[in-house]
Write a protein that binds this DNA or RNA. Sequence first.
DNA 1: GTTTTTGAACTGACCAGTCAGTTTAAATGG
DNA 2: CCATTTAAACTGACTGGTCAGTTCAAAAAC
Lengths: 194, 194
Amino acid sequence: MADGRTRRREDTRQRLFEAAVELIAEQGFSATTVDDIALRAGVAKGTVYYNFKSKTDLFEELLRYGVGLLTAEFRAAVEGLPPREAVAALVRSQLEYIRRYRAFAQLLLSEMWRTNREWQQTLILLREQAIGVIAETLRDGVDSGDLPADLDVRVASSALFGVGLVVAVDWLVFMPERPIEDVQESLLAIVRRF
Amino acid sequence: MADGRTRRREDTRQRLFEAAVELIAEQGFSATTVDDIALRAGVAKGTVYYNFKSKTDLFEELLRYGVGLLTAEFRAAVEGLPPREAVAALVRSQLEYIRRYRAFAQLLLSEMWRTNREWQQTLILLREQAIGVIAETLRDGVDSGDLPADLDVRVASSALFGVGLVVAVDWLVFMPERPIEDVQESLLAIVRRF
DNA sequence: GTTTTTGAACTGACCAGTCAGTTTAAATGG
DNA sequence: CCATTTAAACTGACTGGTCAGTTCAAAAAC
């Protein structure tokens, strides 16, 4: 299972992910060359094609991987919490996730609302996956009466997701010196009405 | 001033802007070719280079033009209004602007939080220009006591701008059937605490 | 007659993807 | 143990295609 080969390969894929996510967040997908990615990851170009079908495939797997992590954190964060606290926990975990994987968040922000790209379907699916966890939480809150009955769950959950993303990335890009607690507080204040 | 020649030229530039903004919003800057832009604008490739120094130059002028329009609308919207109404007017005019120039808004959303692109400086400057109008309005509100004295104007104005952008684009991309009044109301609800 | 646009041809840089060859980890077997 | 074999993992030069940007003569618009 964890023999030297698979370990080595996992390590290579990880390094390729990291290199790709940074470069694509900085420059965008098309402006990032496979040579760049290989160079930053410290591997040969051929290795990229040994590990991934194509540049696009690398990107799609990267999206799946990153959103998978986020979704898992969301699920862990709300586990067993009553609705209102669960919402606060969601906001907190989104912020922490974005601080940790800032480049990935920038990449999502850049690509999430585009149209007509080849990976668009993948991204819409992943978006629904992440927003789905938020929606479940809000739904529970509405059903249990903790949240207002007239709350439009679909709208509220996608707004929550989008607002968190943009506020967090804006924070990291333009006012990184600001402590995370402040940002948490501002976001929760904005969002407390849910 | 407005003779037939300059008018014709303005018209050509306008068509090039429109073609470019749509294509770049869909695909990103690098993936959009000058041939594409000329084709969609219904113009020869040579015309692009007669009217603009380069592809990058076209893009920068486009950013300046689009943000200039937004800033002008902001200014017109707050003209003579008391602070709290002015904030509502800002939100409303941002939404209407984004509905009208959806592709440009998508483009801003994609490019605004990137780093290391050639036009990054231009974009930061333009961002400050637009956010500046919001900040002035909030500042006035704080000074006159209509808004809480402890409001962090810098943070609040950039949050206001970012939240409006992401909520509006999300609306147009994922729930276009939803009436603008609903979205206005949700946004104002989120933002009313300012 | 001047400005603007056309359209086609051309150049040179750049880049995704390929593939024949090399290195490395681990399995085999003595 | 150590030597040999195997195939997985990686390498990097190379190819074929693409595209930004240039040029220009001729036409169209004013």
